[in-house]
Design a protein around this nucleic acid. Structure first.
Length: 275
DNA sequence: GTGCTTGTTGGCCA
DNA sequence: GTGGCCAACAAGCA
């Protein structure tokens, strides 16, 4: 599930652990999320450390503990973070539980496409520093987008929007939302967008990121069970895209779903035409 | 049982 | 070497 704003939402779920010492770490050592880093190494590295801060970038999370030791989490398709009471018993899909005096910090991931990474030392891990500049940062320019689209000119624009090396944090639903707002057909080859369309795409990338963060990231867990149930304004494509017979909130015309770039894609033919 | 799923990776091929 | 496509990973849900 998690795309940019949901990742930020989950980052905040571990905030109750800030400034707290790790008393113990529980894992499911054979879970696939530990394919890069053995679970016992994570447990050894974190136990006794104080949790200091966290950051979200693209679809990844980075937690810094005293040492320093860095814990990296990718939430994959179904990863979720939560803070529970200290005596919370780990469930079937709770692959990592970090226990402090006042909270159990839980990483749950039924499908296990997520991953856990570990790094010791003063500097953040290389995979973190290599992340593309955030879409809401000044480094995300129209020129950078135009250049990237030129290089991927043959690929459908929908597939290009999913490439984290330029559009960090964009996932399937955000890509559809952006293209719908920018009135661009998902199948259109990236290299065929006119300069005005590229600028529109750039603008909507930033707008959707801003709106998503404002709408999703700050919610409390109580009114946000699984992220699918987040209440999103009906003016967004989001609320209509998975329903059969869904209609475009702007034109009232029927929406269409089909596979584009290997992913299920929803668009409004009345609004998004190939040019 | 079937057929989906908001992500990423590596292998294949042009 | 680069770009584009696809299967695979795994579990839950309708």
């Amino acid at each position: 599930m998690p795309e940019l704003a949901e990742v930020e939402f989950f980052r905040r779920q571990w905030n109750p652990g800030h400034g707290q010492r790790v008393l113990s770490v529980e894992t499911h050592p054979r879970a696939r999320v530990f394919r890069d880093t053995p679970a016992d190494a994570v447990a050894t590295a974190l136990t006794g450390r104080v949790f200091r801060e966290s950051q979200a970038g693209a679809k990844q999370l980075l937690f810094r503990f005293d040492g320093p030791v860095w814990l990296g989490l990718h939430l994959g398709m179904s990863g979720e973070l939560a803070a529970r009471s200290p005596d919370y018993p780990a469930g079937k899909h709770d692959h990592l539980v970090v226990r402090t005096k006042s909270a159990a910090l839980v990483f749950r991931d039924p499908r296990m496409f997520g991953r856990v990474q570990l790094q010791a030392g003063e500097t953040p891990p290389p995979w973190w520093t290599r992340l593309a500049p955030p879409i809401l940062s000044p480094a995300f320019t129209v020129e950078a987008v135009a250049e990237f689209l030129e290089r991927r000119q043959g690929a459908p624009i929908k597939a290009v929007l999913l490439m984290q090396e330029r559009f960090p944090g964009i996932g399937n639903w955000m890509a559809d939302e952006i293209l719908w707002r920018a009135a661009i057909h998902p199948q259109q080859p990236a290299g065929t967008l006119r300069p005005a369309a590229v600028r529109g795409l750039w603008r909507e990338c930033r707008r959707v990121c801003r709106l998503a963060l404002a709408t999703i990231a700050g919610r409390t867990e109580a009114d946000t069970p699984p992220s699918l149930n987040i209440r999103i304004p009906d003016a967004w494509l989001f609320n209509h895209r998975w329903r059969d017979g869904g209609r475009c909130p702007r034109t009232g015309r029927p929406l269409v779903r089909a596979e584009v770039g290997g992913r299920t894609t929803c668009w409004s033919p009345a609004r998004q035409k190939r040019r």
